[in-house]
Nucleic acid binder design. Sequence first.
DNA 1: TGTACATCAGTGAACGCGCGTTCACTGATGTAC
DNA 2: TGTACATCAGTGAACGCGCGTTCACTGATGTAC
Lengths: 219, 219
Amino acid sequence: VATSSRRSTYHHGDLANALTDAATELAREGGPEAVVLREAARRVGVSATAAYRHFASHGDLYHAVKSRAQDQLADYMEEDAATAADPIERLRAIGSAYLRFALAEPGLYRTAFSREDTSAPHQAEPADFRSYRMLQTVLDEVMAAGLLDPARRAHCETALWSTVHGLALLLLDGPLAAMPPDLRQQAIDRVLEFSLDGICPARAVNPPPASGRPAPGST
Amino acid sequence: VATSSRRSTYHHGDLANALTDAATELAREGGPEAVVLREAARRVGVSATAAYRHFASHGDLYHAVKSRAQDQLADYMEEDAATAADPIERLRAIGSAYLRFALAEPGLYRTAFSREDTSAPHQAEPADFRSYRMLQTVLDEVMAAGLLDPARRAHCETALWSTVHGLALLLLDGPLAAMPPDLRQQAIDRVLEFSLDGICPARAVNPPPASGRPAPGST
DNA sequence: TGTACATCAGTGAACGCGCGTTCACTGATGTAC
DNA sequence: TGTACATCAGTGAACGCGCGTTCACTGATGTAC
């Protein structure tokens, strides 16, 4: 399996993967619009036509790239979740990893959440996202630990996902793009706390004594 | 000023506005990518070249459309805010109007928050958005009414905006697009409550007696 | 162990599309005298 | 009140671009006998 962009043999051996790699790199550099079949083929050192042996259309290739991007996001989250000691910490960790990924890999992040071609094989469901399933699991842990009122359990995923997703996009493409980095980190920290407080209001009213939660305003 | 798409006089009279109207309609129908200078000119019944008498480039026209879209969002919010009795109601109202606009006018909504061309005249600031200034004002009112701890005032705008923006995009383009409408409205209502609870946790722990806040789970 | 041949995985040229933008132009308007 | 003329606001043809996709093809591979 040659990962090099020029090959010696006539047959590539793993062209589908090589094209997906190249196209993912395009997304990384330039976002969803930069995923161009011809350019991916060019980078692999192959004719554009060759791509059609492995992908039915541009949309097919694009779909593969999008999946990769979603997976990398989940990787970031998994990595940070592993360092967390308790469920609330873990919730904070996956939220902050989400934003870390969005800011570190804006092109991939945008691609992961770009609108799919209407002719997509099937409508995406939340459960198709590894990151969503992680969020579900952690919320269940928080509830099991007695920190989340079962009456408030429904729609928690949606609330948290909305917040981090919205913040990511406001920071990347929106009116918050001009924020200086230090203020930006402060905003991220505060927004995450607001979210946790919304889920577990008791936590905010009677803060746990030994919690590592930073006081409002500190950094 | 003729708003009709075909004109009788050689000189149009208000071509700049007519082009912006047409281009905004394109955005409404197909989102930001659908804002095509040539098509706008076609719809107005004028040669594509004529547009260059009024706009320096496609980006210029696009910018005008984006402003219109942002303005219409603020109109929606203002409309609903007017019906609210108290500050918390008003906060809920502008949030729900935000989502109402996003779902009713997805093309315009996407355009309002689309990434600006890097060669834009200046970086957008939150304060450039009428909707943001409304949010600020209402939050100040909530604080003045004693319902928001001044120590928690900072970054409230960012938290709320992130949540509604994220939810809107997850519902429009994201994995929540497949949600059936009734569940969707439930999700919107709950997410707004989570947000308000995050801002004012005391409200959630000791719910105000005569408040119109729906009980969790009700619709 | 060799050979015929189906199949697989590439090539290169070309098509059609629609875009933003430029060019040299012409028709309409309004102002100076 | 008329006329010369600068200026303004349009026209139509054309350019160059890069894309996704199709076409007829050829080189490499592997299997049957």
